[in-house]
Write a protein that binds this DNA or RNA. Structure first.
Length: 271
DNA sequence: ATGGTGGTTAGACCA
């Protein structure tokens, strides 16, 4: 019998400040699973009860004070898996869970890759060096996942727009952190190592422009449309064939006091 | 070449 799983990834940039927006989105769209990044919320202050009331009783959270933070909210039972300390730092950039049981189970990984600062030089900018180290570690992780977790899904704010049409101007952004060749090549190596299927690009191949983020610093984001695709859903090789549909909820960027990222959703047949 | 905006949390730090 066909079982469809809907998964959304959304960098919310403070889950407490935008709790009403998350609840509105969940009420309207009712995805099975919502993966959040940049919750900026210690675990003991996470608004668990509000999400439970909305039907998302099953939660795996990994937060810290002030920065970063990831969470998985689910209407289906989930088994929390151990969160990884990427680059040896306990900085709440990964969480994982298993959803479903037996042969139909999938493993879901939610990552928040470091943004990397402004200067695209690892010698001059330790934040960029950290980002490159993180991507290398993601490659090692993906090789392992390909061998041991073929029914895996990797989502998150990866802070890299890997393809030419993942940004508003490929040429103008080649020196801009998130689209430099060292980052985009690194991310393509991660995809190759995991044999991941890039779900949104399977549905909307190049040269269609696809964005999930618009800077706060650009006024008239909607008309100028200087976006980038920083948020990703990747499917392990045993899941790619089940991909049904996807959507990017661009309209949430126009909500009052929005996140600079918008939700990205995929619907997937898992058995 | 620069500065533009936003969140956390109380002066920077991060995006």
């Amino acid at each position: 019998m066909a079982d469809t799983l809907s998964v959304v990834t959304w960098n919310i940039n403070s889950v407490r400040l935008r709790l009403d927006q998350v609840l509105r989105f969940l009420t309207e769209q009712q995805p099975d699973v919502l993966c959040l990044q940049e919750t900026k919320c210690p675990n003991d202050l996470f608004p668990k009860g509000a999400f439970e009331k909305a039907g998302y009783r099953h939660q795996a959270i990994m937060g810290m004070k002030g920065y970063n933070g990831v969470a998985i909210l689910s209407r289906r039972p989930l088994e929390p898996l151990s969160a990884r300390e990427m680059c040896g730092k306990p900085d709440a950039r990964h969480i994982a869970a298993r959803i479903g049981e037996g042969a139909g189970a999938v493993t879901l990984h939610n990552f928040y890759v470091p943004a990397g600062g402004d200067i695209p030089d690892p010698e001059a900018n330790p934040k960029f060096a950290h980002k490159l180290d993180f991507v290398k570690e993601l490659q090692v992780f993906s090789e392992e996942a390909r061998r041991t977790e073929p029914r895996a899904i990797l989502v998150g704010d990866l802070n890299i727009a890997p393809l030419e049409h993942d940004v508003w101007s490929h040429k103008k952004l080649l020196d801009i952190v998130s689209h430099t060749p060292i980052e985009t090549n690194g991310l393509m190596d991660v995809i190759a190592a995991g044999e991941w299927g890039d779900a949104m690009r399977l549905l909307k191949p190049e040269p269609e422009k696809v964005y999930s983020w618009w800077s706060y610093r650009s006024p008239d984001w909607e008309t100028r449309d200087l976006g980038r695709r920083l948020d990703h859903v990747w499917l392990g090789r045993d899941l790619v064939g089940g991909l049904q549909s996807g959507r990017i909820f661009r309209e949430t960027r126009g909500w009052e006091r929005p996140s600079d990222h918008v939700p990205v959703r995929i619907d997937l047949e898992i058995d």
